[in-house]
Design a protein around this nucleic acid. Structure first.
Lengths: 215, 215
DNA sequence: ACCTACACGTGATAC
DNA sequence: TGTATCACGTGTAGG
């Protein structure tokens, strides 16, 4: 494997590179200088240079290791990583980040669209119908009005009279006002208007029975 | 800026490196060889080597650019990126990925914990009360039973008689059975048992009014 | 033989 | 000053 080379190359010591540096382009002392200056002074310069170079390459190595460590954790985090080379890792990471961002915002939207939205009944009376796109013939009806006993059953009866069925409801009551969300199954396109007007009547006028036998 | 150096270094051509290669450690032809062999043959070898080296360094440059391009897009994607160096980018990326994963799973959990959970009424009659830890005095009551008109208002009356209040309800009706979740505010610890028994009665026996005026 | 990916040491540059 | 980061060309192992 490619990654196994890493361990091997750690064996290399710095003498190789020092020798190479001296051989190639490192300034030599002039012969005409005195022995002492040409030797001790230049040698200390050489040694300083070597030391600096060594420090430099060691620092660079630390930097590489820091970066490669992060690549390593990325490798461990990312699922289904086929190509393990650095560029592919970064590409895959970017893809993942984008996907996760989209997923998170979608889920937040969903959450908002269910419970959070229904949390507060609006002040004025309101009635809204919309078709759910995820299922055929499913209509979501949202209504805000004054709360009263028997409201739910009135609504259920109204919908039952239209041969439709309430499959799910959410209801919040706060301060005497109620916001109700109904998911109604079995509403045809042409009967949407009728459903709306029926619900409107039920919302505002207590039914016959409710008036005669107030609870 | 550090990143501005990139553009400058592109100006460097390959003659520098070729010269350096010849100067430092590239094999020289022997003088004792014939003119032809020592010149043309070695020159072609040199040229081949140079060509190969050039190809190599160009390929390496492409690789670097590929990787650095991904760093660039990461820089653009990640918000609030203070330190722009490679290691920090990777660290920040990893943090983001972990956070997003956690966030996504939390939101999924939330979604599951609200709507999905309440979706199916259980077959047998069931009544469960639990205290909500996020708010003081808030109790979540879950009950599954046969559906009937007026059930909701019976429940509401029962709870009202205990000086408590239903602040939110979720209700699913499917196949004549109903699962209802009530969030009840204002229940003391000692009245939990009373609430439970009251709800039990309401669940199984239609109220007086309901029996006299069946809807 | 060729290509790819990597680690390395180095000079340049910024702070 | 020293101490970061970076791009670069190179040697080298694996395919």
């Amino acid at each position: 494997m490619v990654l196994l080379r890493q361990g091997m190359q750690h064996v290399r010591n710095y003498y190789n590179s020092e020798a190479q540096m001296i051989r190639s382009n490192f300034p030599r002392p002039f012969i005409s200088q005195t022995y002492k200056s040409s030797f001790t002074k230049q040698k200390s310069k050489v040694e300083n240079k070597l030391l600096a170079a060594k420090k430099h390459s060691e620092a660079e190595k630390r930097r590489r290791m820091r970066i490669n460590g992060q690549y390593e954790t990325l490798r461990s985090i990312l699922p289904n990583l086929i190509k393990k080379d650095k560029a592919s890792i970064l590409v895959e990471t970017i893809k993942q980040v984008k996907e996760l961002k989209k997923k998170a915002s979608n889920l937040e939207e969903q959450n908002r669209g269910t419970l959070k939205e229904v949390k507060f009944p609006s002040g004025g009376d309101r009635l809204n119908l919309e078709k759910c796109n995820d299922e055929e013939g499913l209509v979501k009806a949202t209504l805000s009005c004054e709360d009263r006993p028997g409201l739910m059953s009135s609504i259920a009866r109204a919908i039952g009279s239209m041969k439709a069925k309430v499959v799910k409801t959410e209801m919040v009551t706060v301060g005497g006002r109620t916001k109700t969300v109904l998911w109604v199954q079995g509403i045809e396109n042409e009967s949407m208007g009728m459903l709306k007007s029926t619900l409107k009547v039920v919302m505002h006028k207590p039914s016959f029975k409710m008036r005669r036998f107030p609870q």
